[in-house]
Design a protein around this nucleic acid. Structure first.
Lengths: 337, 337
DNA sequence: TTGTACGCGTTATCAC
DNA sequence: GTGATAACGCGTACAA
């Protein structure tokens, strides 16, 4: 129980070094007006005592806690963890800490967390949605900058970072077109998600650009499940046996699709290329063949969110929608080895 | 920019209510020695000004921050998020906040985070490992209680919460035995993980108890992948076609196993029952049939970790290994509908 | 170059 | 029942 080791306070360091509190503070903070050997003495004392500045006390005087609150509604950490990592990375040595809370899509709980985080004087708030549809704003009255990620705020005065689902649809479609595919079908996701519609829009836009028509229905929404992927694939292949590519609106759907194709003896990517969205590693790299999928770049999104907090903190905050570029992870389901 | 609304300080509340700082504080904290209508006035003023106590300042005097640091090395949030949720749940209205940091299995980074978190005066530390093997202790000199979860500390003086992988092996084996299965094979996981060995130990123990021998090899370790599941299944079915159950050391392996069985025309669970470990929803409920799998109860683990922090905080801390019970999620791969 | 003194927002101990 | 006042640990004008 040598607890004092880390509980050492600046006062201890000062007296150990035989200087005053103020001098010790200056020495540790690298201020210029302190004699070289005095600084050394202080630094040694601090090292000796394992001194760690009490950032809680630092805040009280500086006004900044160097911490951000992350409010997530994402059950499985699919979005939150990459974003957390992006946030940590963005600040580098700046030492920004992340207070993570889980709102579970419950606005009461969310409000509660906002209060708590504000009480803890976080310097900013990052709200992570669970779906891409606009969500209610936390309001304009908050004393710290707020960045909405994944799900945009419904208030255009807020700053929201969103995935470019339309662009993602275009990206994957162009990829397939470039491979010579022309009879392309699409398995939609859950129709209650904006992402489903956006991805479809991107796909049809890219196809139209190339003068190609989407094969099959444009309005058969389903769910983000493997079983829907299997069922939809069966329908498509029965109705349009000459299809040469299928774009699935999520990796889970694509897994079902691949299953179904293999059962029918359809080769991938030989007969039919398959591509999807999300690039969820565990799903995309476990399948046979591995899945070509659009990566939504969550980590970059987290980084951007953190940067926007900083920008807002010292300067003029931005507002509106900031679209995050996505990228294609190309694997065996579209490009055979 | 009515920032003052939330920036309101106790002083503002006090003057608005026409009382002193001290009285305002007492009123808000429900202390007895304050007249009823005075309290009402203060409460109203606080409500009016949207007063939120500055918990940073509260800490400075109380010594408690009501926050814990969560240091994770879990890339995908597989363990961290359920544990986070457990932690949040454990404290209920106690308002414990969680500072999440990502060490990425790098001890330098980990040390760095420990320093940072201690500087922020967290009341406790929860370390989440990425594998079940023992990991180096953070040391005994820390001024706050530390709980190791998932991966135990190598110092028996520390408190570690671990999954009962041996028990999990027994659990799933007894389940299969109770269904009348007797020719049971096992696909091992990555041999460099303690979990692989423990699960195997549990399985053989339960089998021995029933006087049954494990079918096939006991020492063919592989990896936590679907492709290993497929390859191993092929080997097993070729060598032991009369097998009536396969226990896979992870859900990913099981997914490969199911794939392989379907291709051979083996019905599940008719001909062969399949069960596994982890109960990773996205994998276990997407398969055909859905997977029976042992759930390691991460959320309960997080709850327990939080509780142990509290116990250590006010009273005598515990040491040693605390084993977390697991439970079986029974689905179609062992019990046909 | 160094030290003194004050303030950050809150709680707690005392007088009144 | 209420109100000054002293902490808590630190940064920083300002004085020495």
């Amino acid at each position: 129980m040598t607890g004092n080791s880390v509980r050492a306070t600046l006062r201890d360091v000062a007296s150990a070094a035989g200087v005053s509190l103020a001098t010790a503070s200056k020495a540790l903070n690298g201020r210029s007006d302190v004699k070289a050997d005095t600084r050394v003495r202080v630094l040694e004392a601090a090292e000796d005592l394992q001194f760690t500045p009490n950032s809680v006390a630092q805040h009280l005087v500086s006004g900044r806690t160097r911490s951000v609150g992350l409010i997530t509604s994402d059950l499985v950490g699919r979005f939150s963890l990459p974003i957390l990592r992006g946030v940590e990375g963005a600040f580098g040595s700046q030492q920004m800490s992340v207070l993570l809370t889980d709102a579970r899509e419950d606005s009461i709980r969310e409000q509660h967390h906002v209060r708590t985080l504000l009480g803890r004087k976080v310097d900013g708030l990052i709200v992570v949605g669970s779906r891409t549809d606009p969500r209610p704003s936390l309001g304009r009255h908050l004393p710290v900058p707020v960045v909405y990620t994944y799900a945009p705020s419904d208030d255009p005065q807020d700053l929201s970072l969103i995935c470019d689902n339309v662009g993602a649809g275009e990206l994957v479609t162009r990829h397939l077109l470039s491979l010579g595919r022309r009879r392309i079908a699409h398995i939609l996701g859950d129709g209650t998600y904006q992402a489903s519609h956006d991805r479809l829009a991107g796909i049809t836009a890219a196809l139209a650009e190339a003068g190609v028509e989407l094969v099959g229905a444009h309005d058969m929404f389903g769910s983000w499940t493997e079983s829907w992927g299997r069922a939809a694939t069966t329908q498509i292949m029965d109705a349009h046996p000459r299809v040469d590519a299928i774009i699935c609106s999520s990796d889970q759907i694509a897994r079902g699709c691949l299953d179904s194709l293999r059962e029918r003896g359809v080769t991938v990517p030989g007969d039919v290329a398959v591509a999807s969205f999300d690039n969820w590693e565990i799903l995309a790299t476990g399948s046979r063949p591995e899945l070509t999928s659009v990566d939504m770049n969550f980590q970059a999104m987290g980084k951007a969110a953190a940067e926007q907090i900083v920008v807002a903190l010292d300067g003029e905050p931005r507002a509106g929608l900031l679209t995050q570029v996505c990228r294609l992870a190309i694997r065996g389901s579209t490009v055979g080895e």
